[in-house]
Each structure stands twice: as structure tokens, then as C-alpha cells.
Design a protein around this nucleic acid. Sequence first.
DNA 1: AATGAATGAGTCTTCATTCAT
DNA 2: GATGAATGAAGACTCATTCAT
Lengths: 190, 190, 190, 190
Amino acid sequence: MEKRERIITAAIEAFSEKGVEKTTISDIVKRANIAQGTFYLYFPSKLSVMPDIASVFVEHLMVELNKHVTASSFKQQLNQLVDTVFRTTDEHKKLAVLIYSGLTQSEHLQQWETIYAPLYDWLSERLETAKQAGSVRHTLQADYTARIMIGSIESTAEQLYLYNQEEHARAKEHKQELIHFLSHALAASE
Amino acid sequence: MEKRERIITAAIEAFSEKGVEKTTISDIVKRANIAQGTFYLYFPSKLSVMPDIASVFVEHLMVELNKHVTASSFKQQLNQLVDTVFRTTDEHKKLAVLIYSGLTQSEHLQQWETIYAPLYDWLSERLETAKQAGSVRHTLQADYTARIMIGSIESTAEQLYLYNQEEHARAKEHKQELIHFLSHALAASE
Amino acid sequence: MEKRERIITAAIEAFSEKGVEKTTISDIVKRANIAQGTFYLYFPSKLSVMPDIASVFVEHLMVELNKHVTASSFKQQLNQLVDTVFRTTDEHKKLAVLIYSGLTQSEHLQQWETIYAPLYDWLSERLETAKQAGSVRHTLQADYTARIMIGSIESTAEQLYLYNQEEHARAKEHKQELIHFLSHALAASE
Amino acid sequence: MEKRERIITAAIEAFSEKGVEKTTISDIVKRANIAQGTFYLYFPSKLSVMPDIASVFVEHLMVELNKHVTASSFKQQLNQLVDTVFRTTDEHKKLAVLIYSGLTQSEHLQQWETIYAPLYDWLSERLETAKQAGSVRHTLQADYTARIMIGSIESTAEQLYLYNQEEHARAKEHKQELIHFLSHALAASE
DNA sequence: AATGAATGAGTCTTCATTCAT
DNA sequence: GATGAATGAAGACTCATTCAT
């Protein structure tokens, strides 16, 4: 479905540049190099492209995680996880924001859970493994904890890269603090 | 500045009911009971009302925190903190969503930090006090940790109340897990 | 380009009747029998139609000149030239005024020269021919003189028909004086 | 009437900068440093300021003419007249255009004659004197000729300074040609 | 006489949506 | 399926005008 992908890619670009509200379907079709009417053959409205965009982002994040979170010790995995989410958020600043705001604007809020599911599952499994191995506290519930962790990591990344232009040094400290925070939160109680 | 407040209140109502994108300036002025042109004497666009709305929300949250986070032990304070944020988010679902999405839509992303400052400061001080009292680990840095905590609490509350309609039982568990998570993250290492 | 012409014609009518300032784009599209949005596919604003209107006027004037300035003697040609410009100005009073004022209002002042070019060229050639035939003074420079002559004829026509409601008798005298004036200005010095 | 003058001056500035159509009463009062309502104590609409503006311009031109057209020979006076009108038009490009377009837009077209009356009278008298002195042809009628002359001089000046950006050399030639043209038009027939 | 906040009718302008090709 | 000119409803925005102070 070549045209459909062209629309999604074009929408990502347009939304990133102008914001969701100010982007028009006309902007999207121009970038996608298709006719005005063609858009409607694939999507009923501009907001209905959002879930597809979010999936693209999460898929991308999953690829990155699988590529970079490779350590054998859970402690190192945690570091790699934070690094990867931070880097991805930084690289796709605009995209991250627009998914967030775009989903909330659409009637697709409920899809958030579904879209993030692969990410939650991935982390959940890792936590479960680590729990069996005794590298994290055995009292934690992997599924909830995965959600809480992703939430803290992303919210911190957003605070650093989107809302704020903290100078480099402080950003590094802030991230380090997050890692300590998570380590303690997860640590196997001795 | 009576008119200005009327506009903010009306905008909150309108945005909550119809969503930011579908709300028109005409909707806002009708609710505010002012003339069309009067809106433009105070704000240049509907999105420019967002920072003021966010401030209202944070102020409200601060009032609630000051009212309900009263325990003497830090452990209990943590419980009250999570409770209050969860309750406020639940009670103002629509408002919460629109602040997140609305701020990102506007060019006011950078103001986020400023708007949230009172909240961060408030928690930071409590953490500092707790640190001196030895009720949290002495290695934590109060300012960063405050941001990370608020981030995790809010993102969890959002997952529960906005994105997801988890049944009550699971919501309770999820929240409990968050409290454990935070407790461990902060616990004074013995 | 059928729609484009409809817009120009409608704009001429509307501007003539209500004046440029009081004409709305809505007036124009109603007359042109096209949709509101269609106007913007062809012109960005009502003033941007002015150069096209001016061209229509000059083209019309050219047709009239070619039809009525037919004498073989230059002296008679001069009479016919003045007659034609006067008659055309009188017949299209409103149009003439709006071109002068409309062009100046728009950012298209510089186009004046281009739009008038055919008229200047036409007269310039006639003057050149007359110079060769010895019916006008050989010291005149055809291109400049053409511009000066058109200027005096039009400004006099405007004084008579637009700014002033001189009674018929005086108008005739005024015009006669212009012809004498031009005759002397051009006369081959004996 | 201090406020009235402030309004006229402010209107000249505003009209010159933004054009008549795009100038708002709000622009004028801001420049005049008076309150919105005060405008209406002196003028009923923005276009009603036009006749006053035109008078200012003509008065200025009269002052200049009286200062610079001082030669005793009529031939030299003609040169000085053209020079002065050209210089004034050049110096007040924007103002000249806006009077032209502003008057035509308003219902004040008929006032043109009245406003220009001092100028026409001034030249008319000079022509009459020159006629008596035999320095111009005795067949000319001073009043009409004055109008024709002013018309040609102004239209040429406008062509040079407003519509066209002719390079300096050609502008000089064009002006020279105008002076020859007028000289011949007026010359006492020998 | 002077003010300037408020008004709201009137326009401009956009843009989702359609449909004949 | 694909096109893109045309549509016109809907909204944004302006600005002349008023009027209580």
C-alpha cells in the first residue's frame, strides 16, 4: 500500500513542522505528492492518521531497544534502556510531542495502551527474568512496574528535551539521578 | 482584570467539553458573555490561553496538596501525595488532558517548567526535610528527584484515568505498586 | 481561463458601482457567480485584480484608437486622438477613476508603465512617422513626447469629466485649447 | 485647534506608509497620540481627512513655487516651475499618490478643482502677464492653459517618480523634453 | 473636550469535502 | 483507483463606533 505509507510519512513531517492543529490535509497531500481527494481513500480525517504515526514511533523505539539493550547484567540493561529512550526522544522531539498531543486530541486516547503494549511487554519480560535471577526485588509486579518505569523515563526525557533547555551538565546529572532512582526502586532488598 | 478571568474560565469549560481543536473563539466568548472582539484585547489566539489554564490547574493542585498532605511521617506524606495527584487527575480528567495536549500545541512548551515550578519546589523542600530527618536516602538530590517523582506519579495517573479504563481492582494495585516503587526508590539505605 | 475572466469582469462592475474600498470580495463572487473560495484560486486579494482591470481598459482604449484615429494628416490624427481619449474617459468615468486610484492603492504602481506600454508605443510610432513626413518638429523625441502627450490629454480629460462638472460650452473650449496647445508643442518650426 | 492638526499630520504619515485602504483610524490615533474617540470629535471618517491633506500639499507647493519661481524671463520661470513641481513630487512621492487616490475614493472628487484653484490661479496670472509682455503666444487662454500645463507637468513627474524607476539620465532627458514641449506649446508665434 | 475599553456587525480567509473526469 | 478544481460553510479577525467616566 504505497500511497498509505506516503501519507503517514508526509503527516509526520507536516505535524512535526507546523503542529497538529495548524496542519491541513492540503499540507499533507502536497508533501505526499498525491491529489487532494486521494487522502480520503485512505483516511477519513487528519487525526485518524495519528494512531498509525504512534505505531511507527513505538516500532522505531522497539528496534532501537532491541539493538542497544544487550547487556547481560540487569543494572547495565537499565542504563541502556534509559539511554535509548532519552536518545530517541531527543532525536524525535517533535514527533514525540505530537503523538502525545495528537492522540489526546483524537478520539483515539484509548489506543495508547494498545500502541504501547509491545514496549510494556518487552520491559515486563525483562523484569520478570531479572526477578527470577534475583537481580531485582522479588516483591515487584513486572507488568505495573514496567508501566511506571516507562512513564518516569519518558516524562523525564520530555522534561529535559522538550520543555526545558537545561544546559548539558545538568541534563546529565538529571539523567544520572533518574538511574539511581530506578535502581533503588528496583533493587533486590538485601 | 475581571474580563481576563472570565475568558480563562470559559476556555476551560469549552475546551473540556469539546476539545481544543473543536472549540472556537466564538464558543469561548459566548460562555464568557463578552463580545467577540473583547477576546482579542486579552489573548491573540485560543491556544495562547493554554498557559493560563495550566497555571490554574497547578494552582488548584497546590491547594489540594497543601490541604491533604499533612502527615508527619514522610512515608504517609508519600501516600497522600500520590492520592491527591490521582484524585485531582481523575476529577479533572478533561482539564488534565487538554493541558498536556494544549501546551504542546502552543508555542508555549518552554513555559511548562515555569508553570510547574511551584509544584517542584514544594516537593523538593519536603524531600530535603525528609533527607535531613533521615527518612529518605541521603544520596538523593531533592530537585531532580522531585521532578522524577512528579513525572512518574502523573504518568501513572494518566495511564490509569485517561488512556485506559482499567477496572477498579487493577487500578488500586497499579497505584499500590507505584507507592512501593517510590518508597524503594527513596528509602534510606540501612 | 474562464473563471479568471469572470472575476475580472465582475470586479470591474462592482468597483465601478460601489468604489474599491466599499466593494467586498463577496460582492465580486456573487456577480461572477462563483464560490467564495474560488476567488482565492485566482487572486490573493481584491486589489490584486487591479492590474488586470487596467489592462482591460488600455486594451479597450487601443481598440478605440485603432478604430477612430484614421485620418491621413497628422493634424487630424491629433484631433481624433484627443476625441477618442476624451470620449473613452467620459464613457468609462468610473472605471477610469478606479484604475487611477486602484493602481496606486495596490502595490502594483510599477506595472503602470508596462500596462500603458502599448499606448505609448502606438503614439510613439505615429509621431515618428509624422516626424519623417515633416508634419511635426524634427527636434522632438517620439518616446518621451508620446508619454507627455498622453499625460496631458488624460489629465485634461480627468479634469473635465471626473473632477469637475464644467458646463458643456466650457468643456468644449477647454478641449479646443488642449488641441491648440498640443499643435503648437508639436508644430514643425518653419 | 491643536488636536486637529495632530490628526492631519498623523493621517499623512499613516496613509503614506500603509496606503489609504489599509490605514485604520486606530493607526491614526496612535500616531497622533490621542484617544480613539477623540478622532470623531474632528472628523467623521478617515476619508474625510483627505481634503485637508490635499490642502496641506497644495499649500506646500505654493510656498515652494513662490520661493523658487523668481526669474524675470518667462522662459526661465517655466524651467523653475517644472523643477519645483518635479522636486516636490519626488520629495513627497507617497503623499502625492495618496491625495490622488484618496480623493478619488472619497466623495470629495469635486473638491479637487477647489483645492488646486490657488495653483491654477497663480500660473494663470503669470501666463496672462507673459501674454501681455509678448513672451507667450497671444492666442492662448490663460486659465485653460494653466490647467493643461499643471496636468502635463504633474503627470510627467508622476510617470518619472512614481510609476517608473527610470535611470537618472533618462529622467533628465524626459524632463528636458517636457520643457521643450511646453516652450513650443506656449511660444509666441513669430 | 477627552478618554479608551468594549462592542459586534461585517469581512476575509481557510480548508474539509465532493465529484466529474 | 486517482485526480484537483471547485465549493461554501465555518471561523478568525478587524475596526468603526459608542458611551460611561
